[in-house]
Design a protein around this nucleic acid. Structure first.
Length: 169
DNA sequence: GAATAGATCCGC
DNA sequence: CGGATCTATTCA
């Protein structure tokens, strides 16, 4: 019923992908959720980007082709889900921070809670989400008004308004 | 090998 | 605001 997003969608500039992902549907196994909050992490000049200083074992998924997943553990207890953007070997990704579950009246606000609830873990790192029936993004053909704010939880790069959140009224 | 910071969350 | 909890990365 919904279209799967093509790889070209994720090959756009990361800020554009971050905004355009709002309202799209995250599909993970049988669960679906409307994306309500995202953050952009972009390349070598973004001090908050995990890969700002180059490739490591943890961040290598960020160097994959656009449309791959980047899942990592944070604070010893939570996983965070990102979707890689732009060109292969350029480290950039969009952090999925919030979704509204479909068919269940539940809002998952926060990247750690979201992954815990869906069951996303390190096994789901560096997977291709294009043409993937279990783990992908669907086009909802809906646009929501949103606002841009500083990203959450970072110590460097706060001046960039690279967090995008659907405005609710 | 040790130290430490970290894209979080919850409860007080 | 602190504690939980742990790992990848950095430092010595």
């Amino acid at each position: 019923m919904y279209d799967f997003l093509e790889r070209e969608f994720f090959e756009q500039p990361t800020l554009e992908v971050s905004k355009n992902l709002l309202g799209k549907i995250l599909l993970f196994n049988q669960l679906q959720g409307i994306i309500t909050e995202t953050e952009a992490y972009i390349g070598y000049d973004d001090p908050a980007c995990h890969a700002a200083k180059g490739k490591t074992k943890r961040n290598q998924a960020m160097f994959e082709r656009a449309g791959f997943s980047y899942v990592y553990m944070i604070y010893g207890m939570y996983f965070c889900l990102n979707i890689v953007t732009e060109k292969k070997d350029f480290p950039a990704a969009v952090l999925i921070r919030g979704i509204k579950l479909i068919n269940v009246n539940k809002i998952l606000n926060g990247p750690g809670k979201l992954c815990k609830e869906l069951g996303i873990n390190k096994e789901h790192n560096q997977l291709d989400m294009i043409n993937n029936q279990q783990f992908s993004i669907l086009n909802n053909n809906v646009k929501f008004p949103f606002e841009a704010t500083p990203r959450i939880g970072i110590t460097k790069g706060k001046e960039n308004l690279w967090r995008f959140i659907v405005k609710v009224k």
